[in-house]
Design a protein around this nucleic acid. Sequence first.
DNA 1: GGATATACCTACATCGCTGTATGTAAAGTG
DNA 2: CACTTTACATACAGCGATGTAGGTATATCC
Lengths: 205, 205
Amino acid sequence: MARSTKAAAEKTRRRILDAAEQLFYVHGVAQTSLEQIAEAAGVTRGAIYWHFADKVALFRALYEGVRLPQEDLVEQAASGGNPDPLGLLEQVACDCLKTLAADRQRQRVYAILLFRCDYLGEMAEALARQSEADAAMHANLTRLFAMAGRDGLLSPRWAPAVAERAFTAMMRGLWVDWLRYERNFDLAGVGSDCVRGLFRSFRAE
Amino acid sequence: MARSTKAAAEKTRRRILDAAEQLFYVHGVAQTSLEQIAEAAGVTRGAIYWHFADKVALFRALYEGVRLPQEDLVEQAASGGNPDPLGLLEQVACDCLKTLAADRQRQRVYAILLFRCDYLGEMAEALARQSEADAAMHANLTRLFAMAGRDGLLSPRWAPAVAERAFTAMMRGLWVDWLRYERNFDLAGVGSDCVRGLFRSFRAE
DNA sequence: GGATATACCTACATCGCTGTATGTAAAGTG
DNA sequence: CACTTTACATACAGCGATGTAGGTATATCC
């Protein structure tokens, strides 16, 4: 076949990305060949090499298309002198779980990033991005919890640094377990209950 | 070279396993060829094929050599009518963190299982084992928390199922974050503090 | 409406990796 | 001391995947 309009080209690019997302999710990044992606997208490898330099570039385009939950968290909980930072964070965290639970594409991409690829060699930059997002999140939340501690909003039984780690660990554990085992519990419901329980403990004097 | 004694053969088997562990950890399972493993072990691919059927078998031997933390947890917290199941679980969990923090081999193998391999195709059984271990752990802990709830040991503000999920999520999050980012916090110290904080909340009436 | 760039497809050349078959020297066995 | 088995090493065959070069038909631009 031949060339179509610019819009059509963008469409095939999308089809390639969608096919890659599906196949990476089902078979893993390393186990998926460009041939398979091309076939699933209804094109040939030539089309893929036209739109992307190689498989790594394709992978990069895939994960750059979605926002990480850490990035969501850090952005929405900016907390510029909020009167109730803990309440805000609790709300944002629950929203975050709800969003993830509803967005199949995010689920697939996160699952790929978590379980469907090994991060070495060329893929390392994907890990680097997550690492940066995590660092930013920790920095931000550490400030937030420290503030809450100073303002007497955080129970003295929780050292701010410990509370921050407990919160991030629980969040990570929730979506790791949920994604890993095929969403075998109610993330938005039970997950949010877990978060609320933890924050109840944070606030108790 | 030639054949040596049976003990020497076992030694080369170990060398192969050690080399594989190192390389899988550094480069990922898929990105590591048997040739590289052989070179690192100071043998040829022939030796690997003598001791193992293929790379998958080698990988299996590797992860079958260590116990999963879920298995540790479920075994040590058997809790046959323990008067203080929550206290027991808290202790076991902290021990678990301490053990992981001290055992480099476990850290590498867990990291490989978590981040250095994609679980599809032949590797799926590795995930299956973890899945079973997790299921057993959840079943056991669900019973434990339900018991604690009935006995009035668990705060009524924590539904047993939610508490169980909160605990397992926190544990998973702790060692996932710790392993993923090169042990960038004090797992035994801060991690245990997190667990203790959570259990304090569990017990508060 | 001719020239050119675009958006692919086809064909090829290559290469790393796997698996297996074969060789071989030492260790075990009777 | 024959012989067999063990514990590897070496050599080979083949495939699958990658990257690229070249072809082609259609938009797009002037």
